[in-house]
Design a protein around this nucleic acid. Structure first.
Length: 646
RNA sequence: GCUGCUGUAGCGUAGUGGUAGCGCAACGCCUUGGUAAGGCGUAGGUCGUGGGUUCAAUUCCCACCAGCAGCACCA
């Protein structure tokens, strides 16, 4: 007889097997009404699931983290039912939930277009109103196949053949419609609610294989209620407004062009931003005991063979050969490849000269320019490129030093993120994968060191079991931006393998040779991507210290031109990035233009200011004016514009 | 890489089998104006690239390139 343990620790005993719905009812009528599903020992199951043994049970309501996924999977079914009702002859295939919603792939000769959405959505709402109970049934596989054949569902029939013989075939039925599906699902279509919207249609292949027939995929999104749906749609709009590709063009930061796919042309203002970030990062690295290096971009293929990269990701590498005939004569058909990462090069520096344990930890940092051949479909603005610069560093240390180095790194990283305006940071911990190098004892040590160090640095870890690199466990740092999107940027990876492969050694206290451990670590990840994230996080309104143009000195009448030049020179002298606007335009026009250009400070100079040697300061986003003496203004703004040095 | 879509002036866009408009920006002139768009005028495009069909192609067809959305990928 099952004893049910609830999340609050209480235990309910039943004298016979009970369904999830009954458990919910035994707790309260309100909960029974709100219940969508249950979890049995952490696994989400239908509300109708009968529990016949002792178990930990949670009642899943809309508030539960698993609820959205249930809603989304159900929405896919309701979409499919609606489409089949409206467009007889359309075949169903698959329809899973996705990160923000769901989709369903259909087979139909005529194309779906966004104009069809309103009708389909109306039908979906009708199905929700019908409140069709969703019932799970176990079918015999022959019956399943026969059903699909009879109903002209050739794709489903094909798929039913491929379900492993030892697996049950479950069917979810809602009203007259049904689909073969593993579930779980909501108890009825009414529970889906109406906070859904179809978003787009695209083509795809049956089972993702181009040799197979094409299908049409209809995408949608669904949320717990209208407020959430509205917030999501708003977030999409916000994301468009903040798009770094649009802002990059408008703010004259960079451009990309056909001849250099996946590579960025940085314009003066974009490069100013880059240089500021680099200077900021460099000052922090200097303070934390890193030494900066610069290593070659083009190296002989033999080098990459030795490092193991040629074997593992040659497909992602660019190769180059000298073109001149004389080079071919003297070197033969020698060929080189552009580095896809910096670590092997850093080991070369480590390997020059004999290292002692006294040299450890050795922290080699490089703003390393790397090239990787990313698939064309993966390229995206400056966020995903083929030519990028990592804020890379490798810490060569002993196993005993892993903990301390990890703590140091976490503090460094959190400080940098904080100063850049990212305060919401999550840390993922990925431990040993099935395929791995190194002994279990070594892995034990490395995993424990990372965990302990994260705890000591005050970080809460999100576990990512089995997702570590083959050469060691890793921490991944995910920052959340102003509109709630997550970006994985920083990483710390423990590596026992590469020092072995490339024969890095140091002499220990015992006079013997030892193998150092290598910590791969990055904070921005890549400058290109990180700058894209910063632009979108701030919607282009960069904080003063990062802004490419920090101040514009704008004149009100041309009489003030000489004084305006003097003001600009004084600010420049104080280290600010300043432009003057002496154009024959009204101050209204200038204010509007520089506000739209997102310049943080506007110094208006009229006849009055020129006579009194003052400036009138207007800050971006505010209408207030502040009149300051020139000398005071320079001191004040110099201090405000300084790179944070906390 | 895959599927679908797109490519017209610096940017945003209209349009057509008979070699192209509009707005903003740019430039010039007038205006010297006190905190989010003053007025008038001028210039700017071999319509992504290559091929084909046609008397004629920016328009129709094919290929390629790049971009966009999604998928896959992100070692």
């Amino acid at each position: 007889m099952p004893a049910i343990r609830l999340p609050d620790g209480s235990v309910k005993s039943f004298d016979k097997p009970v369904s999830g719905a009954e458990i919910a009812r035994s707790i309260g009528a309100g909960l029974a009404k709100a219940a969508l599903a249950i979890t049995v020992d952490g696994v989400v199951k239908d509300l109708a699931t009968v529990v016949d043994a002792d178990a930990n049970i949670e009642i899943v309501t809309a508030k539960h983290p698993a609820a959205l996924d249930l809603l989304r999977h159900d929405a896919a079914h309701v979409l499919a039912e609606a489409v089949q009702e409206l467009y007889p002859g359309t075949q169903i295939t698959f329809g899973p939930s996705t990160e923000d919603g769901f989709y369903y792939d259909f087979a139909r000769a005529a194309p779906f277009t966004p104009e069809d959405f309103a009708g389909i959505e109306a039908k979906m709402r009708e199905i929700v109103d019908r409140d069709e109970p969703i019932v799970r049934e176990i079918w015999d596989r022959a019956k399943m196949k026969a059903y699909f054949v009879e109903h002209g569902e050739s794709f489903k029939a094909e798929w039913s053949d491929e379900i492993p013989p030892d697996e049950e075939i479950s069917v979810y039925r809602q009203g007259k419609w049904l689909d073969m599906c593993t579930g779980p699902h909501l108890p009825s279509t009414a529970k889906l609610g109406k906070a859904f919207k179809l978003t787009k249609v695209s083509g795809t292949y049956w089972r993702g294989d181009p040799k197979n027939p094409t299908l049409q995929r209809i995408y949608g999104t669904v949320w717990r209620d209208d407020a959430e749906l509205k917030a999501y749609l708003h977030r999409i709009e916000e994301a468009e407004r903040r798009d770094h590709r649009k802002l990059g063009r408008e703010m004259a930061l960079f451009h990309v062009q056909e001849e250099a796919p996946g590579a960025v042309f940085w314009h003066p203002k974009g490069w100013a931003l880059w240089r500021t970030l680099e200077a900021f990062m460099r000052s922090r690295l200097d303070r934390d005991g890193y030494v900066e290096v610069k290593t070659p971009q083009l190296l002989d293929r033999k080098f990459w063979v030795a490092s193991g990269h040629w074997d593992k990701f040659a497909d992602a590498m660019f190769a180059a050969t000298p073109r001149s005939e004389s080079a071919k004569e003297s070197e033969g058909e020698r060929f080189y490849a552009l580095k896809p990462m910096n670590c092997p090069c850093h080991i070369q520096i480590f390997n020059q000269g004999l290292k002692s344990y006294r040299d450890l930890p050795l922290r080699l940092a490089e703003f390393g320019a790397c090239h990787r051949y990313e698939p064309s479909g993966a390229l995206h603005g400056i966020m995903r490129v083929r030519a990028f610069t990592q804020d890379d560093a490798h810490i060569f240390c002993t196993e005993d030093q892993i903990t301390v180095e990890t703590i140091k790194f976490c503090r460094l990283l959190m400080g940098i993120y904080r100063d850049l305006g990212f305060t919401d940071v999550r840390v993922k911990f990925s431990d040993r994968p099935a395929m791995r190098a190194g002994s279990d004892a070594t892995w034990d040590k490395a995993e424990t060191a990372l965990k302990d160090a994260s705890a000591a640095a005050g970080l809460e870890l999100i576990l990512n079991p089995g997702e570590g690199a083959f050469y060691g466990p890793k921490l991944e740092f995910v920052l959340r931006d102003a509109i709630g999107r997550d970006w994985q940027c920083g990483t710390l990876q423990v590596d026992f393998v590469l020092p072995e492969r490339l024969e890095a050694n140091y002499i220990g206290e015992d006079g013997q040779k030892h193998r150092p451990v290598m910590l791969h670590r990055a904070i921005f990840g890549s400058f290109e991507r990180f700058i894209g994230i910063v632009i979108e996080h701030y919607a282009g309104k960069l904080p003063l210290w990062l802004a490419p143009v920090q101040a514009v000195v704008a004149t009100i009448t041309s009489d003030a031109d000489p004084y305006a030049e003097e003001v600009a020179a004084a600010l420049r002298e104080a280290g600010l990035r300043v432009e003057t606007d002496l154009r024959n335009e009204k101050i209204n026009y200038k204010v509007r233009e520089h506000s739209l250009a997102k310049v943080p400070l506007l110094l208006a100079i009229g006849r009055r200011e020129a006579e009194e040697r003052k400036i009138s300061l207007r800050r971006l986003g505010g209408a207030a004016q502040e009149v300051l003496a020139l000398g005071d203004a320079v001191t004040k703004l110099r201090d405000e514009a300084r790179i944070p040095s906390a």
